[in-house]
Design a protein around this nucleic acid. Structure first.
Lengths: 341, 341
DNA sequence: AATTAGCACTTGTACTCATCGAGTGCCAGA
DNA sequence: TCTGGCACTCGATGAGTACAAGTGCTAATT
């Protein structure tokens, strides 16, 4: 009773099903793959696999399809992470050229990932906790409006408009910015609250109410940096693989738009030894995602530090091999670019 | 031959069809609306309307459904822009609270609009041509990296990372920022190219190569401001109204992700006397949007100036009355907030 | 012990055919 | 100008049938 053949059968079932999107039977299996045994033998193996819960038959007289568990074993034990094709690598290299600012970098990345995988791609904004304050600027916009701008070591630029009680001149505002810059330089964004009183005492009395307002704004900016965000691309691909997802693409889109769900999922997911995190079907523990799988990888961190993830969301019936390779390559590529500068 | 009754019939057909999504027949019509005539009379009217191309029968023995032209007349001649409900108004008022920076303001707006209308909402980033430069900052990020930041009068903040050949100190970079700020203050973003040579001559020789790089970055930033962008929300709503759009929601999503299409469409659309722009079905002159309608309105401009638009995209079979009112109210509301500061 | 051939059985799919009902168009009459 | 009546069209629905794919099991084979 060769145990290895069973795995071979499972592999064949997954591959065929992924390709044809139809339940696969014993006859077709021996024909398409060079298993040197008869259909009857395969049937026995399939019966075993079914007992183990790795495959299931939608109807008595239909072939078998992999269960979530079946995909899981396939992913864990069988499939190899495929190397990237030349074309894919080339596509990635064009990315760096259009790398303007930090945000659009992420945006380009997620688009490319969506294109490469033909699926919905998502990327998490990097956690900001390790970033430090690089510079703070206060610019007058109108007599009673000022824009507070915080520049972080990660290259991210945050802004917030504040309303001032008094009309303050451009110069004075600018000075406030300088004070804030000096006082808070290199401070971790995660260490809150700010020493607002100390900051206020650094400026002459007439500016103090204004300083209070602006320090408050800075604090709000830093505060808001804690809630993560997600960028998404390729939702149209969802529709394309619509047949795989039943008529239920509505709920899926909703779940994706509801960034909270995805964020929690992404942060919960733990990387395996290959540097990938995968959740299949019910493993997502979210009802509207039972027919989808999430493949993700961390980026931007050197071993250990808590990092943000990027990945794709697609039907459980997806080509795991190439998806996994694309996601991992993308994560590595982005990490490299980000660390380079 | 009361012409007004015909319009009444058209209105009834549109309203019933929008509500029931089923072809509406003469009998149902007289029952549901208090037209004080017999079905036969209605049939005559319908025959006329069909001749005019306002309605059509999917099959010989089915009721009628409005054509694009029918919707068009309905929108132009019949429907009234409904006032907002109290709940809707309340929802809008909560918006201003979460109004952090400029970008997230737009983002919140488009989300709210999507929620209110249960449709896909889009918003165009404001044209920047009338904006002026408010402040420019150069911040050192690492020995050979600097972040160039441009703050515009519209409240928008743009950034770009540049690589420096020489290692330049924080102070020197800051001075470059000051020079740029002073020289370019209040300059229109649309007047390019920059007087790069003049700028360079303003700083001591040792900083000149650096200034060249940074001036170039500023120019790139201003340049890129010309291409508009679109923010979208509520794509999940597309799926919900899937039955109205046939199985074709894939192409629609693609067209929406392809921002160019939508951008051109939005800018082409002209406002009618009610302050609304509407394109129905084929009027969008885009194949994958033949089953959709776009309702948009300008925002952020005081009479005449070229402005950006916001709007929704939904099935032609939509509730035009409430959609129109929501879009217009949203545009006005946003305009007010933006002008207030 | 593993494999195979054969066979009865299940069940979803495709197809045909008849029926039904909603709705029309048109004509004749009010 | 409107209305009642009527013949006609055509999609939807449901029943019945044949078919094909695929299984599980048993008995024979290696």
């Amino acid at each position: 009773m060769s145990d290895t053949r069973r795995l071979q059968v499972l592999r064949a079932i997954v591959e065929d099903y992924v390709q044809t999107r139809e339940p696969v039977g014993s006859r077709a299996l021996v024909e398409r793959h060079d298993l040197e045994v008869s259909p009857a033998t395969i049937r026995n193996d399939m019966a075993h696999l079914e007992e183990e819960g790795l495959i299931a038959a939608p109807h008595t007289s239909a072939g078998r399809i992999p269960t979530d568990l079946g995909y899981r074993r396939f992913v864990d034990k069988i499939t190899e992470v495929r190397p990237l094709s030349a074309a894919e690598r080339r596509a990635m290299d064009t990315l760096v050229e259009s790398a303007d600012d930090h945000d659009s970098m992420l945006e380009q990345t997620v688009r490319l990932l969506a294109m490469l995988t033909n699926q919905v791609a998502v990327i998490q904004h990097p956690q900001r906790s390790t970033a430090t304050i690089r510079h703070i600027d206060v610019v007058s916009m109108s007599p009673h409006k000022a824009l507070t701008i915080v520049i972080l070591s990660s290259g991210k630029v945050e802004q917030r408009m504040v309303t001032l009680a008094d009309a303050i001149g451009d110069d004075s505002l600018h000075r406030l910015g300088q004070v804030l810059s000096t006082e808070l330089f290199n401070r971790r964004t995660s260490t809150l609250p700010l020493p607002v009183d100390a900051l206020i005492s650094r400026v002459e009395p007439v500016l103090r109410p204004t300083m209070a307002v602006i320090a408050q704004a800075v604090e709000t900016i830093l505060e808001s940096g804690r809630v993560d965000r997600i960028i998404m691309a390729g939702t149209a691909n969802l529709a394309r693989s619509g047949r795989d997802l039943g008529p239920s693409i509505g709920p899926i889109l909703e779940a994706l738009e509801e960034q909270v769900v995805l964020l929690r999922l992404l942060t919960e997911m733990e990387q395996d030894r290959r540097g990938l995190s995968i959740r299949i079907g019910h493993e997502t523990s979210h009802d509207s995602l039972v027919e989808t799988a999430v493949v993700a990888a961390e980026y931007g961190t050197h071993a250990g530090a808590e990092g943000a993830k990027l990945g794709v969301v697609g039907p459980t019936r997806m080509d795991y091999g190439s998806t996994m390779s694309a996601v991992r390559a993308m994560a590595r590529y982005l990490s490299r670019i980000l660390s380079e500068g």
